[in-house]
Structure formats: C-alpha cells, structure tokens
C-alpha cells in the first residue's frame, strides 16, 4: 500500500471521490442560487429551507401516498417549485426594485418560518427514508466501497447541472431570460411576458433545490435543519464562484467539495471552516469571484 502525503493512497482516492459526491450537492444547490441571483437579483436565503422541503415532500409522498423514490424525484420538484412560484408572486416580486438586502432579509425570514413549521409538525430528530432497492448495495472499488446510490447522485447532479447550463446559455428561452435581466422593458416591448418568465425562473431555481433535497433524503437524515446546515456553505460556494455565474457555481461546487473532503483527512476539525478561508482569499484577490464578471 503506497502512501501519499503520509496517507495511504487508497484512503486518499476514497476521500477524493467522497468530496466529489458532496460537491455534487453543493453544485446543485449553488446552481439554483446562481440562477435566481443572476436572473432575478435576489439573494435567496430560503434555498436551504426549500431543499429541506424537497426531502420532506419525498417522505410525505412515500408515507401518505405510498409513492416511492422515483415518483418523488419527478413530483417533489414540481410541488416545491409550485410553492416557490406562490412565494415569488406573494412576496418576492414586490422587492425587485429595492436593494438586495431586502430580498435577503425577506427570504431569510421565510426560511425561518418554513423551518419552524416543519420542526413543529415533524420534530427535529428526523424521519426514515430508505435508498430505493434499485440503487441499494455498493461496488467494491478496491480502494473503497462505493455505495451505488452515491454514484447515482454524482451522475444525476452532473446531468442536471449541464442541462440547466444548456438551457440558459444555448436556447432561445435562455436568451430571453438573459436579455430580460439586462433590459426588461425592451424585452417586454418585443412581446415577451417578463414578469411571468421571472416567476417561472424562480420556480425553476426552487425546483432544483427540491431535486437536491430528494437526492439527499436517502443519505442524510430527513430533518428540518438539514437545509440550514448546508445553506451557508452553499452561499460561500456561490460567492467564490462569482455571484450569478452558472458555470462558476457548478465548477466551484464540485471543486470545494473535493477541498473539503481532503481537509477531512488531514485536519478534520477545520473541515467546516476551510471553505470560508478560501472565500476570504478569493474575495481579497478577485472580489467578483473566480468566474464572475466585475
């Protein structure tokens, strides 16, 4: 068994892979945040709560209606996305003309309310949700056991990220969206219903969070605080990547997952801090983020 930096090589490869898997969650979540910020200029602090809702809807579908994981993967983003549309219509749409800070405070408040409601209803210790039988089990990769479900998460997250990027950068719809953020009145003058498009964009960003929640349900404990533990890290990811940069969010998500994974090997006590240290350095050197346009 060879050693790299004093750590057995197999262990190091294992941790790289695990970092990549966690990075997949960061990427999925920061992607939604970046889409919402890039196109709506809203710092969506409710993202973690909506991620948590995605997981809870999956649990409710199973517990109340007997609909399993695959249905949840399909339905939960729609249900939570629809909830997001209602949120946008009722509250967020009133803030587009104001400073970012108002949107941040409003969505932070919404996050606390949503979390509080779920905590009151379901308690804090979490609910059981099992890995679907089709994805149960693990592969023996010599250097580690890779649970099949985790491999699925990485692949699925990559596909979802790529698809979102393609829609925004390469389709007509995406072009409308990007144009609307630059100059909404002009796009409206061409006959595009900008407010509706913005509402649906928020819904889509929220649906991405919910999708992440469904993916997370079988491996994390489904509990009301599952989102708030992640959201701060995900914000750091978005800031490092560059606010509003879609590609930046995805690449930094995966990258920082790996950095965090490595920290867990060498100095686990710092694994919660390392991302923020990087954030400070990046902000000092490139205030607009690694992929942002100043």
């Amino acid at each position: 068994m060879e050693d790299l930096f004093g750590i057995p090589a197999p262990l190091l490869f294992g941790q790289l892979l695990l970092g990549l898997i966690n990075g997949a969650f960061y990427a999925m979540l920061s992607l939604g945040l970046a889409v919402i910020f890039g196109l709506l200029n809203i710092v969506n602090m409710a993202h973690g709560a909506l991620f948590m809702m995605g997981a809870f809807v999956a649990w409710l579908l199973l517990d109340k209606l007997g609909l399993g994981y695959w249905w949840a993967l399909l339905l939960s983003p729609f249900i939570v996305g629809a909830f997001g549309v209602v949120l946008e219509k009722l509250f967020i749409s009133r803030l587009y003309k104001l400073d970012h800070l108002y949107g941040l405070l409003l969505t932070f408040g919404l996050a606390l309310v949503i979390e509080g409601v779920f905590r009151n209803e379901f308690g804090s210790s979490g609910l059981p949700y099992r890995i679907p039988p089709e994805l149960a089990g693990s592969w023996d990769l010599d250097f580690m056991f890779l649970p099949i479900y985790r491999a699925w998460v990485v692949v699925f997250a990559l596909v979802a990220c790529l698809a979102t990027w393609l829609v925004i950068e390469k389709t007509r719809l995406g072009a409308y969206l990007r144009a609307a953020t630059e100059n909404a009145p002009l796009v409206q003058a061409f006959g595009v219903n900008v407010p509706r498009m913005v509402t649906l964009t928020y819904g889509a960003g929220v649906a991405l969070a919910a999708l992440g929640g469904v993916l997370a349900a079988p491996i994390y404990s489904v509990n009301p605080q599952m989102g708030s533990n992640l959201i701060i890290v995900v914000f750091a990811v978005v800031v490092i990547g560059g606010m509003g940069s879609i590609l930046g969010a995805v690449l930094t998500g995966f990258g920082l997952g790996i950095v965090e994974g490595m920290t867990k090997v060498f100095y686990p006590e710092a694994s919660a801090t390392v991302i923020f240290v990087i954030m400070v350095i990046v902000l000092l050197a490139r205030p607009a983020g690694l992929f942002g346009r100043a």
Partner: peptide, 19 residues
C-alpha cells in the same frame, strides 16, 4: 473529530474508520 454542529455528511470519517 468533526466540527459540531456544522457537519452534515460523515462519509469521509466513516471511510477512515473502515480503513
């Protein structure tokens, strides 16, 4: 030793335990 309460994923530590 993992940071409390900021840790959500324990797989890195579990793999260390396994090895």
């Amino acid at each position: 030793r993992y940071p409390f309460p900021a840790t959500t994923d324990f797989s890195a530590f579990l793999v260390q335990a396994q090895s």
